[in-house]
């Protein structure tokens, strides 16, 4: 018997490789997954429409809902995400962390159920809400994604600095700044939820009236020790809203959370991955494409080499 030729060898190799591929060889690897709690700001300023979607204005809350779902879909499978809302001075847990991949329809449904109507009070003490959200995340053994425009209502007092009692960096995660740089009017709704225009300057407190009056109150216009201990309500722009980045960065610094501006879903997913703590879970990686591709290559050579040779011969008919 003669020595088997190259094509026999290639066919034999292809056979063995295809058999190997059919048995589905795998290797073990680790994949990072995340445990997260996303808390969404549903205060009035989140109804401001400074996003654009398909050429139409989109409210901040709608942009957050859409991009949060899209970002969650981009995080590696096995990632768990919980859901909560923030308004007044409280963060409120709606959904404990659950596997987003496995329950995507329900998760999407839960995110799209969030509306400003769930809000139980008009105030927006972002700092208190954030501190409670950190607490909720810790109880859930998860990292925090806090999505807010950072607008405090009533505004914080400049003479009373914020303090944070918790341990800095105890819970990892990030603040996501929502909104544009331009001041935007905030829609106003009546008791039945119908939009009735925009907030005007006198609709919202332009200055905080919490705590004792400041030391210089007596020199303010309209001061009256009994009836107006803070003086007149000054004019201001608190009825307009833009993302308060310096404030959010300060809060991030205090609590040890990162900060990013709400961008495209890919960017949000990347920011989450950069700021949250990855838990490594073992996954099996399918290796069968490697022998399968090699088998395909061997087969292509078996057929392709004589084919190419045939073409070459036809191109140079007088060469032989």
């Amino acid at each position: 018997m003669t020595r088997p030729d190259a094509r026999t060898l290639a066919l034999a190799a292809a056979f063995l490789l295809a058999i190997a591929a059919a048995f589905g060889p795998t290797t073990r690897a680790e994949r990072p997954v995340y445990d997260l709690v996303a808390i969404v700001d549903i205060t009035m300023s989140m109804n401001a429409r400074d996003y654009v979607r398909d050429g139409r204005p989109q409210s901040r809350l709608d942009a957050v809902k859409e991009r949060l779902v899209a970002a969650a879909a981009r995080l590696p499978c096995g990632t768990r995400m919980g859901l909560g809302v923030f308004t007044e001075r409280r963060s409120f847990m709606l959904l404990a962390p659950l596997d987003v991949c496995a329950n995507f329809t329900a998760f999407t449904g839960a995110v799209s159920s969030i509306t400003w109507r769930m809000a139980w009070e008009g105030d927006s003490r972002v700092s208190s809400g954030l501190f409670e959200a950190v607490q909720l995340a810790r109880e859930s053994h998860a990292d925090l994604v806090f999505l807010t425009d950072g607008q405090e209502a009533p505004p914080l007092r400049a003479d009373q600095p914020l303090t944070y009692d918790g341990k800095r960096g105890d819970v990892r995660g990030l603040l996501v700044g929502v909104g544009g740089d331009q001041l935007t009017p905030i829609p106003k709704y009546d008791d039945f939820g119908r939009e009735t225009g925009f907030l005007s300057m006198t609709d919202v407190p332009q200055e905080s009236r919490l705590g004792p009056p400041p030391a210089d109150a007596e020199s303010r216009p309209g001061y009256n020790p009994r009836n107006a201990p803070f003086g007149e309500m000054p004019g201001g722009e608190e009825h307009l809203t833009s993302v308060r980045e310096p404030h959010l960065r300060e809060l991030g610094g205090m609590t040890g959370l990162g900060y990013t501006r709400l961008g495209a879903p890919e960017a949000l997913a990347e920011a989450i991955e950069a700021n949250a703590v990855a838990r490594r879970v073992p996954v099996r990686i399918d290796l069968s494409p490697i022998p399968a591709a090699a088998a395909l290559l061997a087969l292509s050579l078996v057929y392709g080499a004589p084919f190419a040779a045939g073409i070459r011969r036809r191109m140079r008919p007088h060469a032989t």
Partner: peptide, 22 residues
């Protein structure tokens, strides 16, 4: 203080458990 829909009608029982867990 206000009503809040959490998970719409679903067959995904893990989501129901997560809503109850909260």
């Amino acid at each position: 203080t206000s009503p809040m829909p959490i998970v719409p009608m679903t067959d995904e029982h893990e989501a129901v458990r997560a809503a109850i867990a909260a």
